[in-house]
């Protein structure tokens, strides 16, 4: 199994719902708490596992606003795991989820340096590295109804822009979406082979322009001339 997310950049509205739901679930989850420094003060700073950034792509009048939510890509070739000196960072062989053992992490930051996607953030209070767990404490929980065994960000997304599934299964929803919509990896040139895939915005349907006939054009011109 190769579990991960597909994010649809066409429909994401940048509401930060995924980030908030993620923080709410994971702060009391296996790697919790996700602490904040000065949360209600002038300069709040804390560990979040999702970040949503907004870009303007292309130049006016063809420009488009794109919201890009980013969390751990659960890379196939995860450098954050190989650089970890303590063995706290590991990638599960059964489903490919990259996790941090909070009891082993010494907070050296090296994994966050090795990650090109900014997926790892140091907890300012615990001094250990926090990252997306793909809600590992939720997706396998058999006490939940089956359709709720998904990451919190996927369940909460109001536009259904996040899809969770197995990339190893060619018939899964995620694999089909990647095929049909030409899903893209971010920064593929670094060779980390991220699992999470981004669906580029669809091309807008071309609006047909009204083309007046020759007769109508001549008539319009004549009317214009006569009225003068």
């Amino acid at each position: 199994m190769k579990l991960g997310l597909v994010v649809d950049l066409d429909t994401c509205v940048g509401c930060h719902g995924c980030a908030t739901a993620c923080k709410q679930w994971n702060t009391s989850g296996t790697i919790g708490p996700l602490s904040d420094k000065d949360p209600y003060g002038r300069d709040p700073n804390g560990a979040w596992l999702n970040r949503i950034r907004t870009y303007e792509v292309d130049d006016s009048p063809n420009s488009k606003t794109v919201n890009m939510p980013m969390s751990c890509m659960h890379c196939d070739d995860a450098a954050c795991v190989t650089v970890c000196p303590t063995g706290a960072s590991y990638k599960r062989s059964e489903d490919g989820i990259v996790l941090v053992d909070q009891d082993k992490c010494m907070g050296c930051n090296l994994c966050s340096w090795a990650c090109p996607y900014g997926a790892r953030e140091l907890d300012p209070d615990a001094g250990t590295m926090k990252k997306c767990t793909l809600c590992v404490d939720r997706i396998y929980d058999e006490s939940l109804p089956e359709d709720e065994r998904k990451p919190a960000c996927v369940l909460t997304c109001p536009t259904k822009s996040r899809v969770f599934g197995d990339f190893d299964d060619p018939n899964s929803e995620v694999s089909q979406l990647v095929r049909d919509r030409a899903g893209k990896q971010l920064m593929p040139e670094l060779g980390y082979n991220p699992v999470n895939t981004y669906l580029p915005p669809r091309n807008k349907p071309v609006v047909e322009q009204y083309q007046p006939s020759l007769k109508a054009t001549v008539k319009g011109w004549v009317n214009k001339v006569i009225s003068r």
Binding site: T82, G107, C108, T128
Partner: peptide, 17 residues
């Protein structure tokens, strides 16, 4: 180190890190 009490574990991943 933000959590130096685990520094002793840094000897354990000689093969990769």
């Amino acid at each position: 180190l933000a959590n130096p009490k685990n520094a002793w574990r840094a000897f354990s991943r000689f093969k990769t890190s």
